[in-house]
Write a protein that binds this DNA or RNA. Structure first.
Lengths: 157, 157
DNA sequence: ATGAGTGCAAATGCTTTGCATCCTG
DNA sequence: CAGGATGCAAAGCATTTGCACTCAT
């Protein structure tokens, strides 16, 4: 069920990423296919390092620069977004509108589906008035708190 | 007027930071005083590098490590928060509840006052149910869009 | 065939750390 | 005067870049 659903969506993501890259005239090398396939299946917002290490296992000779290169190409086309929570950038293959919940205890990051990232009319007007004519295009939220596991372990201490 | 108000709030911030550090048993060295005073007056969410360079002008011999050390001490006491938008961390001396508007054009960051960062009851319940028992403590928002200046220059192009 | 893409390694940028010395409380 | 704080420099990560070689189109 859940595994199946994840597998299907990962496959769909992967396919979409590859076809979009091809449509943009980028070459589909064996490395790019491998990176995209692995990345599309990720649920944990990996850093470039993490992705690189996972890939090197099944694909020796994989280069760091190539991982960054491919992630950048995806990001430039809106097929990946970049999450900056700590020192290293985390890459997110989820292109449905969503926010993030970040655990203050263990640092885990969980996607929180949203209907839209578009600002409400009132927000647009308020920012235009109060933030030097700023025009909002989208609103990102970070929910900070404790994940179920950390909340439980705190209770028992 | 505006300059006066900024000066007063900067002085108040500075005073508050120093007294809190002292209350925590930290020594008030000349360097710490200088860093705190300069930082409290910042409106532009400086990086550690920027702050260091500004300080070195008026205070030769100032060390990088000391700047980080002091900013960390302030952050640990909730007197500064860390903003991670690009590669370098930006430090924010504003401890009133607020969100941030980030310009996609020039990268400028503007504070947007908020009444509270506390989540609404519905948000707490929703995340507990949908995000594996996650307990939200506060909600941060990033408004992405274009600042007045970038919006204007885009219109004329 | 041809130019984009790759691998490697070195460079760059930000942040942290170790240690001898200094100075606040 | 004791222990925290500083300055300096080196080490540690994350990320980017230069260049010769390879391969998808």
């Amino acid at each position: 069920m859940r595994g199946g659903a994840q597998k299907r969506s990962a496959a769909a993501r992967s396919e979409r990423m590859l076809s979009d890259l091809a449509a943009a005239g980028l070459k589909l090398t064996a490395q790019r296919r491998a990176i995209v396939q692995r990345f599309a299946a990720e649920e944990t917002h990996p850093t470039a390092q993490e992705l690189y290490e996972r890939l090197r296992g099944e694909f020796p000779g994989m280069s760091f620069a190539t991982v960054y290169n491919t992630l950048d190409a995806l990001t430039a086309r809106g097929l990946s977004s970049t999450l900056r929570l700590g020192t290293a950038a985390r890459f997110d293959p989820n292109i449905e509108p969503h926010h993030h919940a970040v655990c203050d205890g263990c640092g885990a990051v969980v996607d929180v589906p949203a209907e839209t990232l578009a600002p409400k009319a009132g927000t647009v007007a308020r920012l235009r008035a109060k933030a030097s004519g700023f025009t909002v295009h989208r609103v990102e939220r970070i929910y900070r708190g404790l994940c179920g596991r950390c909340e439980a372990s705190r209770a028992t201490q």
